Amino acid sequence: MTVIDFTAFIGRLATASGETILPYFRTSLSIDNKNARDFDPVTEADRGAEAVMRRLIKQNFPQHGIVGEEFGTEREDAEYVWVLDPIDGTKSFISGFPTWGTLIALLHKGTPVYGMMHQPYIGERFSGDNGSARYQGANNTGRKLAVRRCESLAKAALFTTSPLLMNETDRATFKGVEQHVRLTRYGGDCYSYCMLAAGHLDLVIETELKPYDIAALIPIVTGAGGIVTTWDGKPAQNGGKIIAAGDPRVHEAAMKLLNG
């Protein structure tokens, strides 16, 4: 069984999760906080979307493992493992901004082999399998994704969700990169990686990511010709400190500053 066999099923997961989430968006929904030390919101939309995806996976592939943000892990050592983030960007979601998405990754023997970011409100899907990446918009418009060339940090556009999510040391290190780029913008969550894959920005630097925050985005970025690693150049699927770049020259220059 190859990853191609799962493409239609991943589309079903995206559709089902989107149908669960959309009735909650831009409504007066109840918000819980998962973190006593900070504000880490979760809603019934998050829980409901992950629940419906888990149910479909178990019905169709009971031998597969699942890692999800809201309901933990099952059979994490299985040959195939699904990694789910029902709403990446919940803070944007509860604020009414559309810069959030559902992340669906399929791992084979621990390696992300397919990923999708679905934004049901806008009607966008970004998907990739490491070898190629595609965009599908409303009315079934679609195209291949490709990163853009960027010869230096001085010409690069850099995104991070927020420097406030970094500890003091990492924030200072990030600022060291930030002062060398042409443009920095904050916000975006998963959308930043998809815009990098689409060729609209050049660099994303984050910290404290969980596997479900990044696993689906790796095949999209690499499928579009980009690079995703940890700050020390290792595979990124386990999360942590992450750097994604469209051009290897920008990746190398940023890595030197992050580790300098």
Rank of each mutant, 00 (worst) to 15 (best):
A253C: 04
A236Q: 04
P219M: 04
G223E: 07
I220G: 02
T230L: 06
N238I: 00
L203C: 13
I218E: 01
G223A: 11
K241Q: 14
G240Q: 03
V221T: 07
L209M: 15
E206G: 05
L209N: 13
L203Q: 10
Y212C: 02
P248Y: 12
A244S: 15
K241H: 14
A216Y: 09
T230R: 13
T229S: 14
V228I: 14
I242V: 13
K210A: 14
G223C: 11
I205W: 02
V204F: 09
T229M: 00
R249K: 15
H251C: 01
N238F: 04
H200G: 09
G239Y: 02
D247N: 13
D202A: 04
K210I: 00
A236V: 08
D202W: 08
I214K: 03
K241T: 04
P248A: 12
I214W: 09
I242S: 07
I227H: 15
I242D: 06
G225N: 10
V204H: 02
K210E: 15
I227N: 07
P211Y: 12
T222G: 01
G226A: 13
E252D: 15
G225A: 12
I214Y: 06
A245F: 11
E206T: 12
I243G: 02
Q237L: 00
P211E: 06
K241Y: 02
E252V: 06
H251S: 09
D213T: 05
Y212H: 14
P235T: 11
A254F: 10
D247K: 07
T229P: 02
V228D: 11
D202K: 04
